[in-house]
Design a protein around this nucleic acid. Structure first.
Length: 507
RNA sequence: GCCGCGUUGGUCAAUCGGUUAAGACGCCUCCCUUUCACGGAGGAAUGACGAGUUCGACUCUCGUACGUGGUACCA
């Protein structure tokens, strides 16, 4: 079953995919799927100076990892291809020209220097950032002032030009945002936005309108930072005669820094020690890699669950949702208006919950891959499965499976002798010397028998069992962690247990 | 500066005029566990401020403050 609902995610391929971007994609996707509609990925690569090769594939990979499946995209194509704006250049120009001939846009020949001096000259204390608007446009070098012949002459000699939208005066632009309700703006405060750049590429303003129209987008989700230019886009929809087909807007609240103020940025992640990008991103120039949620050990289910709850709530006292549940429950009405500070602790909690609630079988492929990467030899898959279920409760990030599980397969890389030192004495040393023999005598090697033998010896030696269990654990595991120690001994086997005890030295 | 948007505990948040103002994260205490977790019980902690509307305001209106975004031939 399908409906006519079509949403899109339209990032520009300039680098790592920010978690705010993923959330925008997620909400668009959830909304589309809830209404049996389509979700489209469109790449907004109109700024050639910021284009980063590989970023497009990377974005597609991030979405795929998150389970945010696209119905149409540059890579898979679709009925409204191409989905890369750089490949749609001619389309935009045609509409820009249409606006010029209608009198809704004009050629502007101002050089960057001229624009700068205009801004400089008009700058006052009460107006620190002058705009190219109805007050100044008649003083600039554009087809509004120049004679038609002059314009044609300039065009004839290939003078660089841009096409600017001519904002109508004295209009109130009001529109209904699905999240914020009615929003209105005074057109006199708007500037004449560039629609078509000197290099022939459209700006976002033109491209978003043209593409949303041509691609039949019905609901447009984007970040709140676009709210100030929304009236321009609405004016453009009207000028192009497409008002009836205009999508419904939803301006999502921003994701803010956990401390201080402002939008969450890549820098904040580095500063505070958590990822900002969905997946690892390596800068082509510096070769620097910025860590992603995937690589530090997040489960995609947990990642999107966390993101979904950052700005939306179901209204129930429930926070754990699968993608399918999110699709079913998601509603625009329940999206918050205010920005949300990102809380990495809470993000980790989601991941921990997802690991705990996932079946060992589900976790298995990832853990196995992780172990292979870490060169931890897994003798039997069954054993790994057993270990996953034994330790998953104490793994917050997938990578925790390394510390929590590797000692089952190999001797601990290091032994936390400091943990046993304070209470260590000769009696205990003797106990462990004898323990080898006692353990060796066990015929049926299981946790119960090991524990019984261990406790009997402790009784004979008159040492508290509790004081012996910690050293025993450290010998087997390497530190003060892991499940029941006798269970561990059972799994690693008699020989290995005895060997690790014998290898133990307090240095 | 101007314009837009926002404002319930430290954080995420429920409430859509009448509640002892949910729940979660984090924090603290205790139980369980002679590791670390998990689990369980409890605790501290919230409506920015000021007017108004109303029998009644966290909820509606206005103002103030604060926060945030925009103010590019970037998206």
């Amino acid at each position: 079953m399908t409906s006519n609902v079509r949403t899109r995610f339209a990032p520009s391929p300039t680098g790592g995919l920010h978690l705010g971007g993923v959330r925008t994609a997620l909400y668009s996707y959830l909304f589309a799927k809830k209404h049996q509609g389509q979700f489209i990925l469109r790449v907004e690569d109109t700024d050639q100076s910021r284009y980063v090769s590989g970023a497009e594939q990377y974005i597609a990979d991030c979405l795929a990892w998150c389970g945010i499946n696209t119905d149409e995209s540059p890579l898979q194509g679709g009925p409204y291809a191409p989905y890369r704006q750089s490949e749609r250049k001619d389309i935009y120009k045609q509409y820009a020209l249409q606006l010029v001939s209608q009198g809704d846009a004009y050629y502007a020949f101002d050089t960057p220097e001229e624009l700068e001096s205009m801004r400089h000259d008009n700058k006052t204390a009460s107006n620190p950032s002058p705009q190219y608007d109805h007050q100044v446009r008649m003083k600039m070098k554009n087809s509004l002032n120049l004679l038609p012949d002059e314009v044609n002459a300039l065009l004839a000699v290939n003078t660089p030009y841009v096409i600017r939208y001519k904002v109508p005066q004295n209009e109130f632009i009001t529109f209904n945002d699905m999240i914020r309700g009615e929003i209105s703006n005074d057109s006199n405060l708007l500037d004449d936005k560039v629609l078509l750049k000197a290099d022939g590429m459209p700006t976002y303003h033109l491209a978003v309108v043209v593409d949303d129209y041509l691609m039949k987008i019905t609901h447009a989700f984007r970040g709140e930072e676009w709210l100030p230019s929304a009236p321009i886009h609405i004016l453009l929809w009207k000028a192009l005669g497409w008002e009836q087909a205009m999508p419904q807007w939803a301006h999502l609240p921003l994701i803010l820094k956990p401390d201080g103020n402002g939008k969450l940025s890549k820098r904040d992640g580095e500063r505070l020690g958590f990822p900002i990008f969905a997946m690892d991103w390596t800068d082509a120039q510096t070769r620097e890699t910025t860590k992603g949620f995937k690589e530090i050990g997040f489960l995609p289910e947990a990642f999107i669950n966390m993101l979904a709850m950052l700005g939306w709530s179901s209204g129930e006292a429930k926070e754990l949702f699968s993608k399918e549940e999110l699709i079913e429950k998601f509603s625009i009405e329940r999206v918050h208006k205010a920005g949300a500070k990102f809380d990495f602790e809470k993000a980790k909690w989601y991941n921990h919950e997802w690991i705990k609630h996932s079946a060992a079988e589900t976790l298995f492929p990832q853990v196995k891959a992780l172990y292979e990467k870490e060169n931890i030899a897994v003798q039997h898959d069954d054993l790994l499965l057993k270990i996953i279920s034994l330790v998953k409760d104490r793994c917050v990030l997938m990578n925790d499976f390394i510390m929590q599980g590797s000692y089952f397969f190999q001797k601990p890389a290091s032994i936390d002798t400091e943990a046993v030192k304070p209470k260590w004495n000769e009696e205990k040393q003797l106990f462990f010397q004898e323990l080898s023999n006692v353990l060796d005598a066990i015929t049926v090697w299981d946790a119960v028998n090991i524990e019984t033998a261990f406790k009997e010896l402790a009784l004979i030696k008159n040492i508290k069992v509790g004081e012996l269990q910690l050293p025993f654990r450290v010998m087997l595991v390497g530190g003060k962690y892991g499940p029941a120690v006798f269970q561990i001994a059972e799994i690693i086997g008699k020989d290995e247990t005895i060997q690790r005890c014998n290898d133990f030295k307090l240095s």
